[in-house]
């Protein structure tokens, strides 16, 4: 190499700043555009709708807002939503822990298939999730005539709402626990068993403390979805006012009756639930990571 560059200090400095700019990042203009687009996109599609929910809900003042929430139909919808969530979350909690134990602690053929089946409700349209129960329990369904003959109401009643909700929220807990427990391995449990602990005791004393944050996280997500599920519940509920309306269904009914403020008032409660879930999620993710740190060495 015999090329010489004229080393006037200014050009060197400029050349250096140009040269050193492009290695790990983009020019500031490109950076600005990318950040701008990302922020704009999220603002239009996420922030604005969220603000709108609360602003519409409060558009006629706090008094109106509170009276909309205190309405008897609203109260019964809130009550039904809570009941449904409690039942389906507890069912899926037990199932999720059992499924995660089987999948994470043992090797068996067809494991991938099992995990895929557990995830299935995620890929099924909520409407179809409701439809399958209509086909089972409806008047023209497989068990419909028998149920009717015995005077048992499942469809267009609380049991079907619970079933549909449980169907839709089925994967949440298991999905959260399986990767967590797989990563943690079985050594601690094996140690406990070899020291003479019973299986149940091992689970309670060794496994549970290790997975508690992941478990809580899964339960929270499951609960948020259970309270907010619309499509599946809408198909099986029958929309009987004061009886089979959950909060999301009431939102729809009020909206369609042009009771916009009341509708947004209920919606604001659900939005608040979503926000709280996200905040809890952020905190829990920190806890889960922290809990896993010592395992790395």
């Amino acid at each position: 190499m015999t090329i010489t560059i004229i080393n006037s200090p200014v050009t060197v400095e400029r050349a250096q700043s140009v040269a050193r700019q492009d290695l790990h990042t983009e020019p500031w203009l490109v950076r600005g555009i990318i950040i701008g687009v990302a922020v704009m996109f999220l603002t239009v599609f996420v922030v604005l709708p969220l603000i709108l929910v609360f602003s519409e809900a409060l558009s006629k003042g706090v008094g109106f807002y509170l009276s909309a929430l205190g309405d008897s139909e609203a109260l019964s919808a809130i009550w039904l939503t809570l009941i449904t969530a409690v039942i389906s979350v507890s069912l899926n909690l037990v199932f999720g822990v059992a499924a995660a134990w089987a999948v994470a602690k043992f090797e068996f053929r067809g494991k991938t298939l099992l995990v895929t089946l557990i995830d299935l409700p995620f890929s099924v349209s909520p409407v179809i999730s409701g439809l399958v129960f209509v086909l089972l329990f409806g008047a023209q369904g497989f068990f419909g005539p028998w149920l009717m003959a015995h005077g048992i109401n499942i469809l267009f009643a609380v049991p079907a709402i619970v079933l549909a909700t449980t169907f839709v929220t089925f994967p949440f807990v298991a999905r959260e626990l399986i990767p967590l427990m797989q990563e943690q391995g079985s050594q601690e449990e094996e140690a406990a068993i070899s020291l003479g602990a019973s299986g149940w005791r091992t689970f309670v004393v060794v496994t549970l403390p290790n997975i508690k944050w992941g478990l809580l996280y899964g339960v929270l997500l499951c609960n948020a979805r259970a309270m907010g599920e619309f499509g599946a519940v809408s198909v099986v509920s029958g929309h009987i006012r004061g009886e089979t309306n959950t909060m999301p269904l009431l939102v729809e009914i009020l909206y369609n009756e042009y009771q916009l403020v009341a509708s947004f008032a209920i919606a604001s409660l659900l939005a608040l639930l979503a926000l709280l879930t996200l905040i809890a999620k952020t905190i829990l993710e920190g806890q889960i990571e922290e809990g896993q740190l010592p395992r790395d060495d």
């Binding site: 015999t2 560059i5 060197v12 040269a19």
Partner: peptide, 18 residues
């Protein structure tokens, strides 16, 4: 990139190049 100092290849300032 150094905070200060020079690097040259065959006498040519290398810091002017990426």
């Amino acid at each position: 990139w150094p905070d200060s100092g020079e690097v040259s290849f065959d006498g040519e300032n290398a810091l002017a190049r990426g």
